[in-house]
């Protein structure tokens, strides 16, 4: 565990808490992509099956359980409790366009051809593109609430910090996981445009809106 990894995890945790807080306080999930949230639940479920097979630390187990539980709770809020506020018309990205190719790739490019390993690889690839329905939704409506942009910024920061973590681990621990690194870089690149808008607009007190 290094400082980048810890900050990355905290940023990820913060993102989830911001999202839950936004929904709970406003009693609304407007502007949030249910598709992205379903994909995240799938990511956590397929990656953390190792909860049953290997123990790393109390920290690791606790975080995994929280990520899984919060992702399903988010889906419950969006599709049940606050269903009336869910903006499904603008959430039109097709999940199968991500899940199917990513599933195929996980079968072809993995560290080891074992069920748990393929599922882990699937979750890594899927996580890298799971934000696309949300970004698509923002671009379709042309705007995002400020709280939603804070959520996206925290989520993007998490992946950026993980890249620093991998650089650190490569030099100081001799650790290098090509699959995680490539997917993590792709994931971070997807946020670049958003980071630019966040810094130039939201941090200056303006709402995040896209030019027509």
């Amino acid at each position: 565990m290094n400082v980048f990894r810890l900050l990355g995890d905290m940023s990820h945790l913060l993102a989830i808490l911001i999202l839950l807080l936004k929904m709970w306080k406003t009693r609304s999930c407007a502007g949030i992509s249910g598709k992205t949230q379903i994909l995240f639940a799938l990511v956590f479920t397929t990656r953390y099956l190792d909860l049953f097979s290997s123990f790393i630390s109390i920290y690791n187990t606790t975080m995994k359980l929280f990520f899984i539980a919060s992702s399903y709770f988010t889906i419950f809020l969006m599709y049940s409790k606050f269903k009336a506020t869910y903006d499904s018309n603008h959430d039109s990205f097709r999940m199968e366009f991500l899940v199917v190719p990513v599933g195929g790739l996980a079968f072809l490019v993995n560290h080891e051809f074992l069920p748990l390993e393929i599922l882990w690889t699937f979750s890594i690839y899927l996580e890298s593109v799971a934000i696309l329905p949300q970004l698509f939704m923002v671009s379709k409506t042309g705007e995002a609430e400020t709280i939603t942009s804070h959520y996206l910024f925290a989520l993007g920061s998490y992946r950026l910090l993980y890249i620093f973590n991998w650089v650190y681990r490569y030099y100081f621990d001799g650790f290098f996981d090509l699959i995680a690194v490539v997917a993590g870089c792709v994931q971070t690149i997807l946020y670049c445009d958003f980071f630019y808008l966040y810094i130039t607009k939201v941090l200056k007190g303006k709402k995040l809106s896209l030019p027509a």
């Binding site: 990894r5 995890d9 990820h12 990656r47 190792d50 290997s54 790393i56 690791n60 975080m63 995994k64 990520f67 560290h111 080891e112 074992l114 390993e117 882990w120 993980y162 973590n165 001799g174 650790f175 290098f176 996981d177 090509l178 995680a180």
Partner: peptide
């Protein structure tokens, strides 16, 4: 490491 290595990250 890295080839089917232990996945200790979240």
């Amino acid at each position: 490491n890295g080839v089917g290595g232990k996945h200790d990250e979240l």
